[in-house]
Amino acid sequence: MSDDAPRLWMAAEVSARDRGLLYGDGLFETIRVVRGAAPLWHRHEQRLIEGCRRLRIPCPDVGEVRDALKTLVGGWDDATARLTVTRGEGTRGYAIPPASLPGVFLSAEPSRLPSADDYRNGVAVRLCDLKLAQQPALAGLKHLNRLEQVLARSEWSDASVTEGLLLDGDGRLVCATAANIFAVFGDDIVTPPVERCGVAGVARAEVLALAGARVADLNLDRLRDADEVFLTSAVRGILPVRVFEARQWQPGSVVRRLQAHWGDLGLPLPGVAQGLTE
């Protein structure tokens, strides 16, 4: 087996009656690990704990998971791991079992990041036809049911388009299929709320923790007026948007500052590590 082959660690065997498999009843985290360190782990941990609380799933021992993660990615300089937590096995039907043993699964493989050119010059995005359903009970969670994102991503096969933007049913911009979105207006850095739908990304949380970033509704007209637009995700980090429809942007000072911050965290980005922000 190649040393680059995906690796798997399971705290429980996968049952055909696992509720994560049957109903999407669970959560997941996608974690970038560089030279054995996961700089955003504390944010993944916080989101996992909160997600388990909201779904009423017993949270696994995060210390045990962290130790297993370090062992799993050993020998890789830059790895991407997925932690999946399900409610575990249950009887037939939607009712939550009175007692269940959560399933905990880790998989990992070497990271595959966008190109240095994408980080330097930005990527193209398109608008998806699919609209996100508004469900506050699940909004913000990285739950296992990603069918909306699967269908949205199936809308294009053009390799020159990196991401698709998603609106809710009222025409408000929410996110991309696998990333959160930020728009910059002068000194104002804005990202849409995720209290109605969408995922509260850990990279989004990192940017919001910095001075000047805030949450506010965005529509497409407002987006087109932005000075800079960028995507955030736990693995890809800060990815500038270069073109959307007829609108084009150049990565500006906000994107460069945040890309440099990612390097300072210990999450280097291709093209940025070669003195892009010096």
Score class of each variant (00 low, 15 high):
Gly74Gln: 12
Leu276Thr: 08
Val215Cys: 00
Ala209Thr: 11
Trp249Leu: 02
Ile49Val: 12
Val235Asp: 13
Arg32Gly: 13
Leu267Ser: 05
Gly24Pro: 11
Arg242Lys: 06
Glu148Asn: 13
Arg256His: 14
Val123Lys: 06
Thr71Tyr: 11
Leu8Ser: 13
Asp67Arg: 11
Gln149Asp: 15
Thr86Leu: 03
Ala108Ile: 09
Ser233His: 05
Ala234Ile: 12
Arg214Phe: 09
Lys142Thr: 02
Cys128Trp: 13
Ala5Val: 09
Ala152Asp: 12
Gln274Lys: 15
Gln259Pro: 15
Met1Glu: 15
Val184Pro: 03
Val65Ile: 03
Arg56Phe: 10
Pro268Leu: 00
Pro251Ile: 04
Ala124Leu: 08
Glu89Met: 11
Val34Ser: 09
Arg236Trp: 08
Leu132Val: 03
Val85Pro: 14
Ala5Thr: 11
Arg7Ser: 08
Ile238Leu: 11
Ile238Glu: 06
Arg32Ser: 13
Ala38Glu: 06
Ala38Asn: 08
Pro110Asp: 12
Gly26Tyr: 08
Ala179Ile: 06
Gly90Glu: 05
Gly252Val: 10
Val229His: 00
Val254Pro: 01
Ile238Gly: 11
Val184Leu: 05
Ala234Gln: 08
Gln259Thr: 05
Arg214Tyr: 08
Gly169Val: 10
Pro114Leu: 03
Ala116Asn: 01
Cys128Glu: 10
Arg196Val: 01
Ala152Gly: 14
Cys175Glu: 08
Pro97Thr: 03
Asn121Tyr: 12
Leu72Gln: 13
Asp77Met: 07
Pro192Phe: 07
Leu138Lys: 04
Ala213Ile: 02
Glu29Phe: 04
Ala200Leu: 04
Cys128His: 14
Ala137His: 11
Gly201Asp: 03
Thr80Asn: 10
Val202Gln: 06
Gly164Pro: 01
Glu45Phe: 03
Gly51His: 05
Ala68Asp: 05
Ala124Met: 12
Asp225Thr: 03
Arg66Asn: 09
Gln250Phe: 13
Asp221Pro: 14
Gly20Asn: 06
Asn145Glu: 04
Arg7Lys: 09
Leu223Gln: 00
Val65Tyr: 05
Ala124Gly: 12
Arg56Pro: 07
Asp117Gln: 05
Val34Cys: 07
Gly88Ala: 02
Arg224Phe: 03
Thr191Phe: 00
Pro60Ser: 09
Ala108Val: 12
Val123Thr: 05
Tyr23Leu: 01
Pro102Tyr: 12
Val194Thr: 01
Arg146Gly: 08
Gly26His: 10
Pro110Tyr: 12
Leu218Pro: 00
Gly263Lys: 15
Trp41Tyr: 05
Val73Arg: 06
Gly63Val: 12
Leu21Phe: 04
Arg17His: 07
Asn219His: 02
Val123Asn: 05
Ala124Tyr: 07
Gly122Cys: 04
Arg32Glu: 15
Ile31Leu: 06
Ala99Phe: 13
Met1Gly: 14
Thr177Gly: 07
Leu173Lys: 00
Arg222Ile: 00
Tyr119Lys: 13
Val190Trp: 02
Arg47Met: 07
Arg17Tyr: 06
